[in-house]
Design a protein around this nucleic acid. Sequence first.
DNA 1: CCGTTAAGGTCTACAGCGTTGGCATAAGGA
DNA 2: TCCTTATGCCAACGCTGTAGACCTTAACGG
Lengths: 240, 240
Amino acid sequence: MPKKVVPEGERRRRRPTRQGTVLSEKLIVETALRMLREHGGAGLTARRLGAALGADPSTVYRYFAGLDGLTRAIGEELMGRALDSWTATGEWRADLRSLGLAVHASYLAHPQAALLTASRVTGRPREIEVDETILGILRGAGFGDADAVGVYHAFIDLALAFAALDAGALAIKDEVREADEHMWTSTYARLPAETHPHIAATARLLAERMNDSAYPVVLDTLLGRAEGQLAATRKRAAAP
Amino acid sequence: MPKKVVPEGERRRRRPTRQGTVLSEKLIVETALRMLREHGGAGLTARRLGAALGADPSTVYRYFAGLDGLTRAIGEELMGRALDSWTATGEWRADLRSLGLAVHASYLAHPQAALLTASRVTGRPREIEVDETILGILRGAGFGDADAVGVYHAFIDLALAFAALDAGALAIKDEVREADEHMWTSTYARLPAETHPHIAATARLLAERMNDSAYPVVLDTLLGRAEGQLAATRKRAAAP
DNA sequence: CCGTTAAGGTCTACAGCGTTGGCATAAGGA
DNA sequence: TCCTTATGCCAACGCTGTAGACCTTAACGG
C-alpha cells in the first residue's frame, strides 16, 4: 500500500488528478455506489473505479485500506442514509417500525452494494448511532434493560438479514433480467401434482407472493411480541 | 468452456485423472466445501480446487458451468443435508421449528459456503423438496392455502436470511480470529456515557447477547403468530 | 478381439484482477 | 520564496476465471 491511509478529517493538500477531479472519501463512495448500480456486483473493480473517477486506480488506496475498506465505508453510507431519511414521532412502536423499514429501504435502494455489506458489522459512527437510537427508543418506552437488549438484537439482525436476502433477489433480477423473475411462474408452476401436490395446489398464490418481501410481516410480528412483553412488565410493576 | 457440460446422470466414461482420482459432481462439491472451510471464502479458486482434486483446473468446467454453477450446486447440497438431518413428528409447529433450525444449522456448519449461496434461489431438486415439505406441513395442519403461502414465505425467507447473516458473523470470526470477536466488548463498551448513554447503560448485556443468533427467538415469534392465525381460522369454521 | 468414436482430461494462452513500491509534483506553511 | 511532504501516477507482480485446441483412452459394435 502507498505508505499510509490518511483519514478524511486530516487531509490538507487537495491536489486535483491529471484529469481535473478533486478526490474525497465522499466522492469515491458515491462513485462506487453508482458503478455498483450500473455495472452490477462484479462491476466494481479498482481499475474501473479509477477510470470513473478520472484518476489512477491505485489512488483509491490512499483513501481506503484496500477495496475491502471501501466496502465497509459503503455500508456505513447506507446506514447513514437510512438514519437521515427517518424522523421520530415519540410513539415507540411506530418509530421502530419506520426505522426498520428505513434501513431495509436504504439497502434495497442499492441492492448490489447491500449484498456486499449487509452481513458485516463495521462499528463505524453512523452504525453505532443507529444502535444507540434503537436502544434509546426501547428504554424510553419503558422496557427493562434485558428486554430492551433482547428486542434490539432481534430487531437489528432482522432488518439486516432481510436487507441482504431481498437485495440478493433484486440483484439477480437486475442482472439476469426476466430470466429468474418468472421462476415462480415457470419452474415451480410446471411441477406435476403427483410428485409435488402442495406446490401444485398453491402455485398461483406462490407466484403472487414470492416476488414481494416478507420483511414487513415479520417485523410487525416481532413488534407485536415486544408490545406484549412491555404490557406484562408494566402490569408486574403496577400490581406487585 | 470445454465443449459441453454433461449432467451427472448421463456420464459414461469415467477416466481417472493423471493423478488417479475418479471425478464426480459429488466429489467436486465435497472437495469445494472442504476448501471453503479450510482456506476461507476467498480460498476457493479453480486452480486450487484442481490441485486438491488431483486434476487439471479446467476439468471442473466439464462438470459445472463455471465456478458460479459449482456455487449453486453447493447451495443445493446444503439444503439437501438440512433435509436429511430432519425427521417429521406430525406436530406441525414442532416440525416447522426443527426444520427451520435444521436449515439454519446446515448452513452455519459451512459459513463460507453459506455466504456464497444463502441468498440465491436455485430451483434445484432438493430445494424444491424443502418447499414442498413446508407447504405440506402447513396445509396438513389445516391452514388455508392463502395463509399457508403467507407463512411459508416468511418462514423460508427468515431461515435463509438469518443463515446468511449469522454465517457472515461466523466467517469473519474464523478469518479475523479474535479481532472482531470481542468487538462488542471492545469498541462498544468504550463509548462514553455522555454521547451514547443507552449503549453505555446496556454494554454488559449487549456483549453477552450479540454473539448468539437471534434466529430462534424470531422463529418462535413467527410460529406463535401462525398458531394464532390457525386458531382464528378454526373458530370461524366451527361457528360461522 | 479389434477398430472406431467421442467423452473427458490436459495444455496453453489471454485478458483482467488487487495490490504495492518507487517516483514525481505541487500545495501550503514558514 | 523555499521546504516538506501529501498525494497523484507509473510499472510491475502474482494471481484469477475460463476458452479452445489437443490428446488419451474407455466403451461399444462387429
